[in-house]
Design a protein around this nucleic acid. Structure first.
Lengths: 299, 299
DNA sequence: TCACAGGGTGAAAGATATTTTCGAAGGCCC
DNA sequence: GGGCCTTCGAAAATATCTTTCACCCTGTGA
C-alpha cells in the first residue's frame, strides 16, 4: 500500500478506520476525497462520480459510510477541512517502523504515531454517543465490562477507574463467566464491550445477553460496522492507526481505546462529582501506607 | 482554491464594502451570514430565507453580490470560513480539566494532555538505559514483570506483547506470588518493576529479591529517585504529566508507561526478528477463528 | 464445470434544493 | 395622482442529490 495521506487529521483517520468495510468502488471515492479534499469540495455528486469512474449512488454511499447524512454534508465538511489544512499545515512525516530502525528513531516514531492516534480518536469521536454513554454509566446500578486479550486490559482500566469513584463495576475476560453474569443484568444496568475488531465472538455474546435482558449496552470498537454494534445502544468508535508489521493495528488500538475510556471516566466523574470526589480522595488515603515513606510523594 | 480568504475578517470586510449597494432584505441576509458563518453554513436557502424573514430569491441575490456564483458556493465558503476560524482559536486546552467542563472540552483536553505526556516521555527517555533494557529482555531466559493497581495493567500489557513474540514472560500482581517466583530467578533472567511512585513496597520487594538472586532488573518509574531504583540495573523514567483533581498523576502515568513498554517491545522484536516475526504471524492465525467470519475485502 | 446465492454496482426514477422568472407592491419624482 | 423604477417573494424551472431496482460479478458448493 502506497497511500500517502498526509496527517490530514480526521478524514484520513476515518478513512483508515473504515477502509476495511469499504467496497472497491467506495474505496476509490474515499481515496479521491481523502487525497484532495479541496478539489473534491468543488465537485457535484455527478462530477465526483465521473472523476472516480463510479456512480452517484456509490458516492452517496461512501458519504454515508464516512458518517455524513449525504453527499451535500460531506462536501461541506470537505470545504471546511480544506480550509483548515490551508490554515495550518504542519505536515509531519511518518514512516513505518522498520526492522533496522535505530532505537532513537523507534522511540520518536512510536511517540509520534501514538500522538497522531490520540488526535485522530479525539477528532472523530461521536460526542453525542459519548454523552449518552456517560449518562448511562453515571446512573448505572452496576456496570459489567467485557474485553479479551489486549482489550481485556482496557476493560480492567475502565473498571479500576469506575471503582475509584464509587461506581460498581466488574471486568470479565472469561467468556463463560461473562455470560453467566450478563444474565443477571437488567434495565438500569450497563454492559460495555471492548473489541478492536468488532467481531470478537467471546465479547459479543455477553453483550448480546445483556442487551436481551434490557441493560444499556455500549460498544467500544474500531469497526462501527462490526457485529458487536448490533447489540449496542451506544457505539464509541476508536480510531485505527497506521499499521506496520512490527506494530499491527490490533496492538496499537490500545492507545485509542484508553483515550475513550478516560473520556468516559472523566465524564462520569463530573456527573457524579458529589460522590466521586470523596471516593477519589479516600482511595489515595487508603493507598498511602502502601508506599514506603521515603520522600514527600504525596504531592 | 482561487478564492482565498486571508482572514476571518474577510467576510465582514466584504459586508461593509458592499453594504451601501444592498437593499434592506439583502442587508438582513448578509448580516446573518456575517454574524454566524458556521450556523448559516448548516442552512439551506429556504431555511436561511425563513430565518432572515426573506425569500430564497433574496438569499441568492445576496450571495451573488458577495461574489459567489450562487448560494451553494456561498455556503461552501461559509463552511470553510467557520473551520478556519475554529482552527485559528485552538482554545485553552492547556487548562486543567474542571468539573464543569463540557464534554467536547474534556475530550480535547484529555487528548492534548496525553499527547503532551507522550512527547515529554519520548524527549526525556534515557536511550542508553533503554538500549540496555532491550538487550537484557531480548536475551532473557525468562522475564517476570511486577505491577500493582494501575501499573498492573501495564505489566500485563508488556507480558502479552512479549509472549506474542515468543519470549517467556509472566506478570505478577500478587505480591506474595511475585516474591515466591522471584526467588526462582537467576542470572540471565530479567525482572521488571513498574511503579509510578517508585515507592510501592509490594513491587519493590520482588524486584529486590530478583536483584539479590542475580537477575537483571529493570525499573519503569516516574520517580528516578524512588526506592525502587536501588535494586534496578536499568531505570527507565516515565514522565509525570500535569495533574488535576479529576485526573491525578498516578492515573495518567499509564500513558507514559505504555509508551515505554511499546519501545521495549519493538526493540526486543527487532533484535529477535527471526523468531519474533513468525511468532507474531502465528498468533494472528490462531486468533482469526475467534472473530466471527464476516467479510474479506481484497485491498 | 455449472448453477446458485449474495452482495456490489450504476442507470434511472424520485425527492430536494437552488435558481430563475415574473408579476405585485412600495416608493419616488414629475 | 400617475407613471416609472426598484425591490421583493411566490412559484415555475432547473440543477442537484437520493433512492430504487435490476443487472452483474464473484465466490461457493454440488
Amino acid at each position: 500500500m502506497k497511500e500517502t495521506f498526509s496527517g490530514s487529521g480526521a478524514l484520513a483517520a476515518k478513512f483508515r478506520t473504515l477502509a476495511p468495510s469499504m467496497t472497491r468502488s467506495m474505496h476509490r471515492v474515499a481515496e479521491a476525497v481523502a487525497g484532495d479534499p479541496a478539489g473534491c469540495a468543488k465537485l457535484t455528486v455527478t462530477a465526483l462520480a465521473t472523476r472516480t469512474g463510479t456512480s452517484e449512488a456509490t458516492v452517496v454511499r461512501t458519504a454515508r459510510l464516512l458518517g455524513y447524512p449525504g453527499y451535500r454534508d460531506l462536501r461541506l465538511a470537505l470545504a471546511a477541512l480544506a480550509a483548515q489544512q490551508a490554515a495550518g499545515a504542519p505536515a509531519a512525516v511518518t514512516a513505518n517502523i522498520a526492522v533496522d530502525d535505530p532505537l532513537p528513531s523507534v522511540v520518536a516514531k512510536l511517540a509520534h504515531d501514538e500522538q497522531q492516534c490520540l488526535a485522530d480518536t479525539a477528532a472523530q469521536l461521536d460526542l453525542a454517543q459519548l454523552e449518552a454513554a456517560v449518562g448511562a454509566l453515571a446512573t448505572a446500578r452496576r456496570t459489567d465490562v467485557y474485553g479479551i486479550g489486549a482489550s481485556s486490559l482496557v476493560a480492567q482500566d475502565l473498571v479500576q477507574k469506575l471503582l475509584r469513584i464509587g461506581r460498581i463495576a466488574h471486568a470479565h475476560n472469561d467468556p463463560h463467566l461473562a455470560v453467566t453474569n450478563a444474565v443477571q443484568l437488567r434495565p438500569g444496568d450497563v454492559a460495555v464491550a471492548i473489541t478492536h475488531s468488532g467481531n470478537t465472538h467471546d465479547v459479543i455474546e455477553p453483550l448480546r445477553v445483556a442487551f436481551d435482558h434490557g441493560a444499556t449496552t455500549i460498544a467500544v470498537t474500531g469497526r462501527p460496522d462490526g457485529a458487536v454494534t448490533q447489540y449496542a445502544d451506544h457505539v464509541l468508535t476508536t480510531s485505527t492507526s497506521r499499521e506496520s508489521e512490527l506494530r499491527p493495528a490490533a496492538m496499537s488500538s490500545r492507545t485509542s481505546q484508553l483515550l475513550v475510556v478516560d473520556c468516559l471516566f472523566i465524564g462520569v466523574a463530573q456527573r457524579t462529582y458529589d460522590t466521586a470526589a470523596p471516593a477519589l480522595s479516600a482511595s489515595y488515603e487508603a493507598l498511602a501506607h502502601r508506599h514506603t515513606p521515603r520522600r514527600n510523594h504525596a504531592r
